[in-house]
Design a protein around this nucleic acid. Structure first.
Lengths: 342, 342
DNA sequence: TTCCCCTGCTAAAACCATTTAGCAGTTGCA
DNA sequence: TGCAACTGCTAAATGGTTTTAGCAGGGGAA
């Protein structure tokens, strides 16, 4: 019952020409010598029959499947993750490619499976996205297709798309300074001594480097540096409450929005107002950043742009160097509340 | 330079047998009469060469590509979305399938594109996921592959996976009653009169029906029903603040967690404590629900289970009826704070 | 006239797997 | 002995496209 797919041969027959001619015309070859009349007839026949090329057959012949693989350790968890996917998806769509999404949980066995599955389907390229990546991630298989690392790096694959964390770190400090804050600043989320020898991630190290450099250049030092491994709201809450027992900061620089969220709660409970008593700045532009009152001023991860850049890089023929994307500054009301800010 | 792919012919040659034999052995045909020795030789040769079947070639012959399409209106936005994808991904992986993810933004043109792209790649089935779906969604193309609707329904495709919103609605009310609350309850997010003639979504209607039925059976009526179209925190905040100017509720039943988040802020600002003064219950188990203090007691959408169920349904040969999944009750501290609850 | 090039097109091979049809040799049974 | 059935295997067709090699016919130059 189900009608057979219409094939190139059907089109050719209807047009009264060979499949060779039909193929050449429909793929838009430039140097062909087929007549204008032939072109017209083939196009007419194709649209009349609703012809769509069979991608599997084409892939078999050309080794191009117009599809790419997006392999990541985690896909859910943060808004960051879906932003990356979303941007990549949009860019893939524009390039008329389709995207296979694969999740590995960071487990080597699943990583291998994922890469194999993608390669079996002759993808035109692979993106390795690191969502939580503490360290570099290396699936050790022969891959003869372009590879782009997204939000991570790899010794084997030089092309990567990264946020400019160093500059982002500097910007966070600069925002505080520009608001006239000149001391009594606390760093929430990291303490060099406590975490000596621990490796969190290359990205975070750069963020910290930017922060430290900017502070030093301004002749400032944090009055406290609070360490915790999981950057979740409850940690931010506990650390801030403990902090307030002994110190009265003028600003808290939080290493992500979730910590800032917890800090916000602790400050509110202590009857301190934001930003008048204590200013807050953080990173990521997580969903919750906009929910707070006042909204959190934050250095955003350019999720969608990164995903998009990865695909564009992957599909650009002779790409040789990766991309570093600026982290946009999202000003809300947690540093100062001038007119015009939410 | 790049080594040629290993083909079945290579394996057959090394094993000293025909490709027919190699194919039959590697695909594990049951009724074949090939010798144990032949089996051993072929498997040996395959693993020695690292043979991997070319999926495109296989798809061309068998019309099965071991891949499915996940087409949704939005992919980022909510945690809900990525939960669905994640569950679907896990189930697909277990079934050794690969998943194409496509986003349409709810635009008909992109919907058609997406379905075509998937069909061109001979997917073994399609999932249409509705993230925000206000109404039913129908891409009007001939699709001769199984289809499952996820979090939505369609007249054309009877198989769908849905949360049991009606029971969820009943549960929300029941939780309040069990906590000894017997009146002064406010419904936040909907007002039958204000929204007469508006169609939000079938799912939400069922949620409301469950709530209304449970209230009626308990002989109760809401002391206020507050309508707003966008269920975002700022709306919840504004409506609750306005409410508090004239009324003093004992509980607020919020139609989603974001509204509850806003209500929480307004209650805190008014100096009311949760749950002692005002109890809060809501829906979705959004990420923010666990961040609040106390945590939000909420009726969860079973994201991952739904995604998983959709794939399993899609891949089950003669599936004839869809699935309705229970909405788990996540008890935190916003209705009552007994020992043991967060 | 012969040779060469150009035009407009096509036959057939190639890509890599699955599957149908069938072959040669042995055994089982009457 | 004759015939059927079985065993263990293979040749060739098939799926839909791209691409290489080349064909027939006409025109221009030498």
């Amino acid at each position: 019952m189900a009608k057979k797919r219409v094939t190139l041969a059907d089109v050719a027959k209807l047009a009264g020409l060979s499949t060779t001619a039909a193929s050449m015309i429909l793929t838009g070859r430039p140097d062909t010598r087929l007549s204008a009349e032939a072109h017209a007839k083939v196009h007419e026949a194709a649209s009349q029959l609703g012809y769509r090329p069979n991608v599997a057959a084409r892939a078999l012949r050309t080794d191009k499947s117009r599809s790419i693989a997006f392999i990541s350790d985690y896909v859910a968890t943060t808004r960051f993750a879906s932003g990356l996917i979303r941007g990549a998806l949009a860019a893939a769509e524009e390039a008329r490619h389709v995207m296979l999404v694969l999740e590995t949980g960071g487990e080597p066995a699943r990583e291998i499976q994922a890469v194999q599955a993608a390669l079996d389907r002759q993808v035109d390229g692979l993106i390795f996205a690191a969502m939580r990546a503490r360290e570099v991630f290396v699936p050790d298989i022969v891959i003869n297709a372009p590879v782009v690392m997204l939000n991570g790096t790899s010794a084997r694959f030089p092309l990567s798309v990264l946020p400019d964390e160093y500059q982002g770190g500097r910007d966070a400090v600069r925002l505080l300074l520009e608001a006239g804050i000149s001391g009594d600043i606390v760093l929430l989320g990291h303490n060099a001594e406590d975490e000596a020898g621990l490796f969190r991630s290359e990205m975070i190290n750069r963020r910290l480097a930017g922060i430290k450099d900017a502070m030093r250049e301004a002749g400032l030092a944090f009055i406290a540096e609070l360490s915790c491994w999981n950057w979740e709201p409850d940690q931010g809450f506990d650390l801030t409450r403990k902090l307030l027992a002994t110190k009265r900061p003028r600003a808290i620089l939080c290493l992500n929005d979730r910590l800032a969220f917890g800090a916000h709660q602790a400050l509110s409970e202590a009857g301190l107002s934001i930003p008048e008593d204590v200013a807050l700045v953080s990173f990521d532009n997580d969903e919750i950043a906009s929910y707070l009152r006042p909204g959190l001023t934050t250095i955003a991860l350019p999720h969608e742009e990164m995903g998009r850049a990865a695909v564009e890089l992957l599909l650009r023929p002779g790409a040789t160097s990766g991309a570093t994307l600026a982290m946009p500054i999202i000003e809300r009301g947690s540093i100062r509340s001038p007119a015009g800010l939410i």
